[in-house]
Simulated scan of single mutants.
Amino acid sequence: MTDTHDFSEAKRGPIVDSKGKTRITIMLDDDILQAFRERARVEGKGYQTLINDALRNALKAKQEPEILAALKQISDSFAHEQALREKENRVFMSSIADASEAFDKALLAVEHSNAKASLPPKELDKIRHAVNVVDVVKGIMEATHKSPGVTRFS
Rank of each mutant, 00 (worst) to 15 (best):
G139A: 07
K87Q: 13
F78E: 15
K122I: 07
A109N: 06
Q82D: 08
A109W: 04
V134N: 07
K105C: 06
H80M: 01
V133H: 06
S118M: 07
R90Q: 10
A117N: 08
A83E: 04
M93Q: 11
I96E: 02
H80S: 05
N114D: 12
V133R: 10
P121M: 14
A117H: 09
N114Y: 04
S118V: 07
E123T: 05
L107F: 07
A97K: 06
N114H: 04
V136Y: 15
A143Q: 11
F103A: 05
N114M: 02
M93S: 05
E86N: 08
L108F: 10
M93N: 04
V91D: 12
A115H: 13
S94I: 09
D125K: 10
E123D: 14
K126R: 07
L84H: 04
K146W: 01
V110A: 02
N132I: 10
D135I: 12
H80N: 02
D135Y: 03
F78W: 13
V134I: 15
L124T: 11
A102K: 09
K122N: 12
I96W: 01
S94L: 13
I140Y: 02
A79Y: 00
A83I: 00
L124A: 03
F103E: 08
D104V: 06
A83T: 00
S95D: 07
K146P: 00
K138W: 08
V131F: 04
R90A: 10
P121D: 15
V110R: 00
E81S: 10
K126Y: 10
A106F: 15
L107T: 04
N89A: 05
H80R: 13
V131L: 12
S77W: 08
M141S: 13
Q82S: 09
F78D: 10
L119Y: 03
F103V: 09
H129F: 02
F92N: 02
A115D: 14
R85I: 05
F103P: 01
L107C: 09
P148D: 10
H145N: 14
E81Q: 12
V150W: 14
E101D: 15
H129V: 08
H145S: 13
E123Q: 07
H129Y: 07
D98T: 15
E86L: 12
I140A: 11
T144S: 01
F78S: 04
K116E: 15
L84G: 06
V136K: 10
P120E: 14
A117E: 07
A143G: 09
D135W: 03
E123H: 12
K116G: 08
K122W: 01
R90N: 07
A102L: 05
P120S: 11
P120T: 06
I96A: 03
E88F: 13
P148S: 08
H129K: 15
K138I: 01
D76S: 03
S113C: 11
S147G: 06
E111W: 04
T144F: 01
Q82W: 01
F103D: 08
I96L: 07
P120R: 14
E81I: 00
M141T: 03
S147V: 00
L124R: 03
H129P: 03
K87I: 01
D135F: 10
R128M: 06
E81M: 02
P120K: 12
F103K: 14
R85E: 13
K87P: 02
G139Q: 11
E111D: 11
K122R: 12
S100H: 12
I127D: 01
